[in-house]
Structures are given as structure tokens and as C-alpha cells.
């Protein structure tokens, strides 16, 4: 297969013929096509796995209207990198224990993968990962965002995450006093 999986570039000119090929084609909200390993997609995304199993994959590009091309490119990139990097056993064990297991630290390559993303791209990727039911990718991106939040003041958090401050001045002062210790850095 000569497709450049790492880049996941638009494959609009590509002819897709065989029905049981080992890749699936995904179409972003803005109409770009991306090809991803069927095995990786099914393993990493519960939604894609369901679509593949249910036969609702469109060989001419399965519409993912909620996901923009930049985010989808990252998703595909991640899937392809993942297929090459991690034994599936490790992934399976990490996907079983969602809520109780200690956090699985991102692998080195996953760290690098999210580190290169802009804030916007990172947030879009979280959204896409959640939409596609990609638990591991969600873990990795959430980890990155939580890293970004560590040690930040409420003001900074509001700015980065675009949250409206709905406290009154007095309430805010009260909270600050009550939790004064939490506002000091270690």
C-alpha cells in the first residue's frame, strides 16, 4: 500500500475498489478523505468498530460530519502511529478499567504527539476522540490538558478555557479566603 498513512492527506483521487480491503476511508466535515487501517480503527474507536461491524462503512468515504479535517487528520495519524507502536494487549488492558485504575501515563510518542498540537487542535482532538469513542486518545489528550491546568490561577483557567466568571466579587473573595492555602504554590 503506497498511501502515506503518517500524513493522512486527502485521498480524493484515490480509487477505492475492493470491498474487503484493510483500510477504511473517513470523510471530514469539510469533505476531505482520510484512509486509516481498519484494524487500528476498530481497535481504537468503539464507534468505528461498531460501524465496521454493522457494515455502515462507506467505501467512498464515511461521513464524519462532526469532525473537521485537521482533527480527523490527527485522529488518523494517531491510529496509524498507534498501530505501529503499542502491542494490542496493553491497549486492551487499559480500556477495560476506565474509572478505577491508576492513570496510564502516555507513552513517549503519545506525549510528543499531543505536545506538537496547538491549543485549538488539542481541544478539537478531544472532541473528536470523544465522538469516536477513542478512550486511549481521550486519555492522552485529557492528560495533556490537565498538565496545562496544573498550577494555574482561576483567572488563567478562565481565560484558556473561555469560562465566564459568574461569581460576584464578594463571593470570590470569600472563596479565596476560605481556600487561601490552595492559592499558594508549593
Amino acid at each position: 500500500m503506497e498511501v502515506d498513512k503518517g500524513k493522512g492527506e486527502a485521498e480524493e483521487t484515490r480509487k477505492v475498489a475492493e470491498a474487503d480491503r484493510d483500510t477504511v476511508t473517513l470523510k471530514s466535515s469539510d469533505g476531505k478523505l482520510f484512509e486509516v487501517s481498519k484494524e487500528a480503527a476498530a481497535r481504537l474507536s468503539t464507534v468505528l468498530a461498531g460501524m465496521i461491524a454493522g457494515g455502515s462503512i462507506d467505501d467512498n468515504g464515511t461521513d464524519l460530519k462532526q469532525i473537521g479535517s485537521e482533527a480527523l487528520e490527527n485522529v488518523v495519524d494517531y491510529c496509524n502511529k498507534h498501530a505501529n507502536s503499542i502491542p494490542s494487549a496493553a491497549l486492551i488492558s487499559s480500556s477495560i478499567s476506565f474509572n478505577t485504575a491508576p492513570f496510564k501515563e502516555p507513552e513517549e510518542w503519545e506525549r510528543k504527539f499531543v505536545d506538537r498540537l496547538s491549543h485549538d487542535a488539542l481541544f478539537d482532538l478531544v472532541e473528536a476522540a470523544n465522538f469516536l469513542g477513542m478512550e486511549r486518545l481521550l486519555d492522552v489528550t485529557c492528560h495533556k490538558i490537565s498538565e496545562m491546568m496544573k498550577g494555574k490561577s482561576p483567572d488563567q483557567i478562565r481565560e484558556v478555557f473561555n469560562i465566564k466568571n459568574d461569581y460576584t466579587k464578594e463571593e470570590l473573595e470569600e472563596i479565596r479566603q476560605e481556600l487561601a492555602w490552595a492559592f499558594y504554590d508549593d
Binding site: V126, L138, T141, R158, F161, L179, W181, A182
Partner: peptide
């Protein structure tokens, strides 16, 4: 960001950060 993702992000933070973040909204 979906609620689930927010939940996941906040779960990873230490308690001290979480206490401070009560002042966000």
C-alpha cells in the same frame, strides 16, 4: 469539550489544584 472529557481532565489534577479551581465558576 464534552462533560466526560472535562471530568477526565479534572480527575487527573491533584486536590490542591481542584480546590483552587472552585473559584473558576
Amino acid at each position: 469539550l464534552p462533560l466526560d472529557a472535562v471530568y477526565e481532565i479534572l480527575l487527573r489534577l491533584p486536590g490542591k489544584d481542584l480546590c483552587r479551581l472552585r473559584a473558576v465558576c
